[in-house]
Nucleic acid binder design. Structure first.
Lengths: 225, 225
DNA sequence: GCTTTCATATTGTCCTACATTATTGTACTA
DNA sequence: TAGTACAATAATGTAGGACAATATGAAAGC
């Protein structure tokens, strides 16, 4: 809608994120400018611009004179991101519920929910399609909230990164996925902002507790490099 | 602390934000690469990289084939930013209160408060020093919260931008500045997370109400270009 | 085994060049 | 005079080459 996205800079920026969701790029992976330039048939200029934007988005770690690697979150950073995500998704859900009478809001919410729960709970937790469906669920919530700034603040990519890195920790909470998401969606669809917020809180609390516990345990064991 | 910041890219990035706070750059202002390059004695490469990062931070609007200008927020975008800021500052305040026993936390909070309230309430609302003091107050809150991701998500620059643009609207709420900030700081210092959150909510509610009203009024009048 | 030194690779920046595109001013027409 | 077509100008987006500064890893020396 807004812009032609054929430009190298855009392509690289988008494909790196898509590639992250598809598993073509993994946390910690080193990215050299030359390699990216050759991969995307671009020169170093656009590559560097894309990397700068990716760093600002929190996708990439840019160390001076060392270059870029896909960001690798610590447990603490992950927990911090989850806390922020809870706050922002709460806002999204509350306003989405407020706007649920508009247009095809209910339909979109229902579709997004079906996309997430229309999968076996025992699916591979890092299945790219599930990741996309999850992202789309939160994306729908954000879109329905009609807050133009939520997308910028929401740490969606970080959440994806931490899911990839700490799949083991999250697995337990993922068993509630269907139930949690359904409750959120139903609250939104019924226009009940308070219930929507509560449902979001219930969902995130599970995950946050797992990370808090893990962090305490790690702290007791001593820090691992 | 972390990096030499003498590099052109860093200098440009930082100085543009500083210049925004000092009034050297104003919302809507056009920025051409050549002009920036000559101003900072750099070539176009680093300038473009800085601009890309500034766009990701929401400081600059980058239109394809048209270049950059300092972002100009609409009333709606401003309101959206305020809503997000309320959510994130609430989180910051709650956790800051939790951590208030640590180190020099109380001292830092007190100092930040003094810096804001140690000024006449009738100060020029856009006084650069006041703007910095305000930013420092929220910065302290964020720092004390010890959430490593809050800084990334917090729309601090946007808040500054909207303050500059809509100084008139905000003026009324600014009369409560001393009282509001004092309540937030006292709640944090006393370690009462709930009270801190409530104080933050009280403060933002004033501003948000002004913008909501203004937006409704503008909607009634018909849109103004 | 540990440290030092050196070779290599990569980044950060500069420069030039040029196609593409937006903007602007001008001339022409009705 | 108003409005449109068009050309001149300016700025962006990208390519490609060059080089200093620096990190990384390997070889050499103790």
């Amino acid at each position: 809608m807004t812009a032609r996205t054929n430009s190298p800079r855009e392509s690289i920026f988008r494909d790196l994120i898509v590639g992250l969701y598809e598993g073509r790029y993994a946390p910690g992976q080193r990215l050299t400018e030359a390699q990216l330039a050759s991969t995307y048939n671009a020169s170093r200029g656009p590559v560097r611009e894309a990397l700068n934007r990716l760093e600002a988005a929190g996708v990439v770690d840019l160390t001076l004179q060392r270059g870029a690697c896909i960001r690798k979150l610590s447990l603490k950073e992950s927990l911090d991101s989850l806390i922020i995500a809870e706050g922002l998704v709460s806002i999204a859900a509350r306003f989405a519920a407020q706007n649920v009478e508009k247009d095809g809001a209910r339909e979109r919410m229902t579709a997004a929910l079906d996309d997430v729960v229309g999968r076996d709970p025992s699916d591979a937790p890092n299945d790219p399609n599930l990741a996309r469906a999850r992202d789309s669920f939160y994306g729908t919530l954000t879109a329905l909230s009609e807050n133009s700034q939520l997308g910028r603040a929401m740490p969606s990519v970080q959440i994806h990164l931490l899911r990839v890195q700490f799949a083991k920790i999250i697995r337990e909470a993922d068993l509630w996925r269907h139930e949690d998401y359904r409750k959120i969606a139903e609250a939104v669809i019924s226009g009940d902002g308070d219930a929507a917020e509560a449902a979001v809180h219930a969902h995130f609390s599970r995950v946050i507790k797992l990370f808090t516990d893990q962090l305490a345990e790690q702290g007791a064991d001593g820090v691992v490099a």
